[in-house]
């Protein structure tokens, strides 16, 4: 049985993520996991996140989930979503917070002074809405998803990986930023596949059947 653990560290509503996974994988056992044991036994781990990064890191540690998260990220298909992507990096400007340090790089805020489109219109922060995702490498997670498909975003911070090879996709707001990263069994996206209709469901479906070597 394919058991998928959605990591619960008290940050927001995990229901949408769990329901979307159940929708694409009706035979899988989707569990909301707030304990180390479930994360160890699960076949796959989804690491979502909502809210501010300092709170997320504090809650993760308060629940003793740092070690099991690191262990899962090193050993099984692992999908980070939104803050769950940002927390994989070394450091976030949001509250000057150290992250898990699994991936080299920083998380920075969209700079207000840079936020103009080609027509000179001011772009809003948070970056909220449906934006295009341009695939930067072939990956099983993109199977059946059109290059440039729109996904739903809500965020004010984005990751800047030090290693360009991590880039799995980028979006533009207004400059290109990396919105998906991949390394071995690890995949993480800044947007919300659980709220991105057909393209998002396809991404989750691809994750559920992904068997990285």
């Amino acid at each position: 049985m394919n058991q998928i653990a959605v990591v619960d560290y008290g940050m927001g509503n995990l229901r949408s993520v769990a329901k979307a996974l159940e929708h694409v994988a009706p035979k899988a056992n989707v569990v909301i996991a707030a304990d180390a044991r479930t994360m160890r036994t699960a076949d796959r781990v989804v690491f979502p996140g909502q809210g501010a990064m300092p709170d997320c890191v504090r809650e993760m540690d308060a629940r003793g989930l740092r070690e099991p998260l690191l262990a899962a990220a090193a050993s099984k298909p692992f999908l980070g979503l939104c803050i769950g992507l940002q927390m994989l990096f070394e450091f976030s400007e949001e509250g000057d917070t150290p992250g898990l340090g699994l991936l080299a790089g920083r998380v920075e805020r969209f700079r207000d002074d840079d936020m103009h489109d080609a027509q000179g219109h001011k772009l809003k922060v948070p970056h909220m809405g449906w934006n295009q995702v341009y695939q930067a490498q072939a990956h099983p997670i993109w199977r059946g998803i059109e290059d440039g498909a729109r996904f739903y975003y809500v965020h004010s911070y984005y990751a800047k990986p030090r290693d360009a090879l991590l880039r799995a996709a980028y979006s533009e707001y207004p400059k290109p930023f990396d919105c998906a990263v991949a390394r071995a069994n690890l995949f993480a996206v800044q947007f919300h596949p659980e709220k991105s209709q057909a393209a998002g469901l396809r991404l989750l479906e691809n994750f559920v059947s992904w068997n990285p070597q």
Partner: peptide, 17 residues
Amino acid sequence: MHSRIHAFTAAVLAKRV
């Protein structure tokens, strides 16, 4: 798809319905 060059155009969020 690989190292695809994307024309740098206006970054436009879709208008929502």
